[in-house]
Nucleic acid binder design. Structure first.
Lengths: 146, 146
DNA sequence: TGATTATACTTGACTGAGTCAAGTAATTGT
DNA sequence: ACAATTACTTGACTCAGTCAAGTATAATCA
């Protein structure tokens, strides 16, 4: 079986899609938050009141780095941090009202850039695009190695 | 037209594919070269004897950063640099034999990691995967904005 | 021609993301 | 109670990448 052409094709797609992702990231970066910060904010938003440890387990991020990002958010009053009564080593993290606004802004920037990506596509084409994406995900998303 | 679900789907795919690219990059990074270095080496290899300026135009890379990467390669004897006789501001860059070996090694690492990606797919599935990738590229790869 | 402007590359100084390891305090297990 | 583990913090650091000034050469044009 000759997969060498497949390798070239996949690498070409990877180069192409790296550029797509890069462009989309640029728009989010304009918000003033780094990608790491945006991811952390998303996790705090999504996982309700949670501990730093929970975020660490989801994201692939250094413990110290995360600690600094969170405390930076606390200083900017985007995240509220209260010591857990049941385990005083941990803190409950959640977005403040201001944090939710910041998150919504990030969310909206991300959505806008995706919309831009689709702007020259018909509804039919958008449907096709998403079906192709689903198919790729299904093909490549196998379990951690059995 | 409701594109809000499409936005969510595309973002989900982006998160997924970011991870795929991250994993593939890891294997190349194990070579000891940074991604920037690998890209520069590729350009020197691909564009025969060329000037730093040519690489700058292809890659999106800082002039000073590129200069350092190239001189680092020269110091490691991976790249040969000779002053252009027709324009003494420029230098002709090309890979040395050692540089070609380093490049082949990088190339082989990249190919291996792609093979790993395909390892659990049938030939049929690999064909499908590539068709989906082509389709996505065609849908999204429009001219710079008319 | 000679003066100005532009180009190719270099270099030093810097920023900021991310890493590492040691330290503190609280918890768990024996 | 004591040892080992866990959650978070902090300081010191590395390294990728940026910025701007500097040098040498080439192109432009009055």
């Amino acid at each position: 079986m000759d997969r060498s052409q497949a390798i070239l094709d996949i690498r070409a797609f990877n180069r192409f899609y790296t550029n797509v992702l890069f462009l989309l990231d640029q728009s989010v970066l304009k918000s003033g938050y780094s990608l790491a910060e945006a991811r952390v904010m998303y996790e705090v938003k999504a996982n309700g009141p949670c501990a730093a440890r929970d975020i660490m387990n989801r994201l692939n991020i250094d413990e110290g780095y995360l600690s600094r990002i969170l405390n930076h958010f606390v200083a900017k009053e985007l995240v509220l941090k209260t010591q857990s009564p049941t385990d005083k080593r941990q803190y409950h993290l959640r977005l403040s009202a201001r944090g939710r606004r910041a998150y919504d802004m990030l969310e909206s920037l991300a959505n806008q850039s995706i919309q831009g990506l689709m702007s020259h596509l018909s509804d039919q084409e958008v449907g096709d695009l998403i079906r192709h994406m689903h198919s790729i995900t299904e093909l490549l998303d196998h379990e951690p190695t059995e």
